Simulated scan of single mutants.
Amino acid sequence: MYMYALLLSGLEMQMAGNFRPSSGAEHHISHLWEMEGINPALDALHGEKVGVALSLVCARYKKIASIEDIAGRIVENYPGIPENSMWCIFGKLFNAVMDENTPDPLSDVDPQVLVEKFPQIQEVIDKIPDGCWIQQLLTRAGCKVTLTDLGLTGEIVPLTLELSPFVRRRMTLMRLSRLINLD
């Protein structure tokens, strides 16, 4: 089953002509950690970081799907890319990261369309596993499972979730969630 999934993702990437079908928010988190702007150097492979990040992403997406009144949670005025945070974190990479994110794909998103399409988004999220199930699979496979296994602490999660969507200029649900008040 797992080999079949790997084959399918490889075929999807070949058909699309890019990595997008197999590189979403979980990869963006791994790349953010690899940039070492919010964390020290980690003694972990890219795939190990992706696995741990996947459990964070699934948990975040399930939280988004649990919202009952999305219209009441839409951010009134999207503040744009958090340049101050990004400058502090990315330092000399700041200009490259800003270039990667210009124009900001969220500037083209109509919040009303997000509200209208939200039930469909919830249906898709309902089909993905939750973070605990991902952790169980990682445990069974003998992989790194938690942030601690990677050498990180839970304190890094809020900043990771805030900045990881800007590692690549891709529209993921993690990036789209910046238009939703999740607090």
Rank of each mutant, 00 (worst) to 15 (best):
M3W: 00
Y4P: 01
L7N: 07
L11R: 04
M15K: 12
F19T: 01
R20L: 10
G24T: 03
I29V: 14
H31Y: 15
L32Q: 05
E36P: 08
N39H: 09
A41R: 15
A44Q: 08
K49C: 04
V50E: 03
V50R: 05
G51C: 01
G51H: 01
A53C: 03
L54K: 02
S55R: 11
S55Q: 11
I64G: 02
A65R: 00
E68R: 03
D69V: 05
D69Y: 08
A71W: 03
R73H: 15
V75S: 04
V75A: 00
V75R: 03
P79I: 07
E83H: 12
E83F: 11
S85F: 08
C88L: 10
G91T: 00
A96D: 14
M98I: 13
N101E: 06
V109F: 14
F118R: 08
F118I: 05
P119M: 09
Q122T: 15
Q122C: 14
I125Y: 03
K127N: 13
K127L: 12
I128A: 10
P129D: 07
D130G: 14
D130C: 15
G131C: 07
C132V: 12
C132T: 11
I134E: 00
A141V: 10
C143I: 04
G151D: 09
L152E: 13
T153H: 14
E155T: 00
V157G: 04
P158Y: 14
L159Y: 13
T160A: 15
L161E: 13
L163C: 12
S164C: 12
S164T: 01
R169M: 07
M171V: 02
M171K: 01
T172P: 10
L173C: 01
M174W: 10
M174I: 13
R175K: 14
S177Q: 08
I180F: 07
N181S: 13
N181E: 15
